[in-house]
Design a protein around this nucleic acid. Structure first.
Lengths: 207, 207
DNA sequence: AGGTGTTGTTCGTTATAACGAACACCAGTT
DNA sequence: AACTGGTGTTCGTTATAACGAACAACACCT
């Protein structure tokens, strides 16, 4: 009944406490556009360990998970939460920040802006492979979305209207409606996306 | 103290990831009336380790925390949740099972019945030191509470009415009202308490 | 092509989490 | 009082989580 005796590949006896942990860490890391080295430096955890954790090859310590969680701006229990695997789009949250990522790798939306501004403005790096589609649920009322195309060609549909945008162009549209972005160009598409949230109080950023 | 050997910058990121973990584990263990040995056997974790975890003298592995969580009929999530320390009564939940315990040790309500019947009947071992008071919020509509006194003398107040019960007596009263049990005897009091929940559908124990 | 910087992985070493057995402690019993 | 069965703690050993450095795989330059 030894749990740890030969546990290398003995994944049968006591099944993985958190089968999704590795995947979750990796998803968050990528969503923040961090390399293993970045995350290592930022969290204080050796990158070799992070690599192993992501591949579920080790059985991390609480302190390790904790440090990673902090570096990823979330909490231990968020990270450990065994959420059902996402189908196409999944969105993590914590402070309401959507981190979108397509499972098949067609699209990725990575957080680019500073985390502490998350309540006012959210700033993403959007990349889509050929044919990639990103569908978004409506953001909060009053949200305005800006899209600046760095590469490729996109169709943006918001509400009933569709617009085509190319490299160098900027599109500004309502983010509080369901919207969809399709990479209609020949290769990869790349854009900077900014969400400006409606300011409610406006006086709340002290301290 | 240090998380590990000379860590990068052992400044702020080093504080205990889960200062409450040890306390939580211990509280749950005691609430289930388990000894370290019992929990060890039930969870597969060495009792020496459990002891150290409870005293926050080690930095457990996820798998360890996981096994403990399972044995305590809860999830890693619940166990790690940094809840504010309880004042007088605190109640853990998971499946709705109240585990009541007085911080100062005057009263303790320990789960006695099998966990899988938790939806139909909850069965506790109640102990109170001299002067101990247990106040309960109302249980779900239709709940009937039974109290069988094993030792001591208690005053039970439910709604507006108060009854005094002594050794050997049984009291049956509505549990869906706020109620209070006071140890009015000279020494410790001891009773078996059973909550019979109102059966709603009765067809829901498949899984 | 051959650097050059990046990525993630592998590898040997060290610190330590987990283990089991021995220990100390206390309450009940004879 | 000594004994007994239970509690929680300690102690030496073993397996391994975490580490850093060396490695490999890939892209991007010049």
């Amino acid at each position: 009944m030894s749990t740890r005796r030969g546990s290398k590949n003995s994944s049968s006896q006591d099944f993985d406490p958190t089968p999704s942990l590795g995947k979750t860490i990796q998803r968050l890391r990528k969503a923040y556009n961090m390399s293993l080295g970045d995350l290592s430096e930022h969290s204080g955890v050796a990158k070799s360990i992070i690599s192993q954790i992501e591949r579920n090859e080790t059985n991390p310590t609480l302190s390790t998970v904790y440090r990673l969680s902090r570096a990823l701006d979330t909490t231990i229990d968020e990270v450990l939460r065994t959420e059902g695997a996402a189908l196409f789009l999944e969105h993590q949250t914590k402070s309401g920040v959507p981190i979108l990522e397509s499972q098949d790798g067609l699209c990725r939306l990575a957080i680019a802006g500073p985390l502490n501004l998350v309540d006012q403005v959210q700033w993403y790096d959007f990349r889509a492979k050929e044919g990639g589609v990103l569908e978004s649920d409506p953001h909060p009322q009053g949200t305005v979305e800006h899209l600046y195309i760095l590469a490729g060609e996109l169709d943006v549909t918001t509400g009933e209207e569709t617009r085509r945008v190319k490299v160098g162009e900027t599109l500004r549209f309502r983010g509080d409606l369901p919207h969809k972005i399709v990479n209609v160009g020949a290769g990869d598409a790349h854009a900077t996306m900014m969400l400006v949230l409606r300011q409610l109080g406006s006086a709340d950023n002290s301290g």
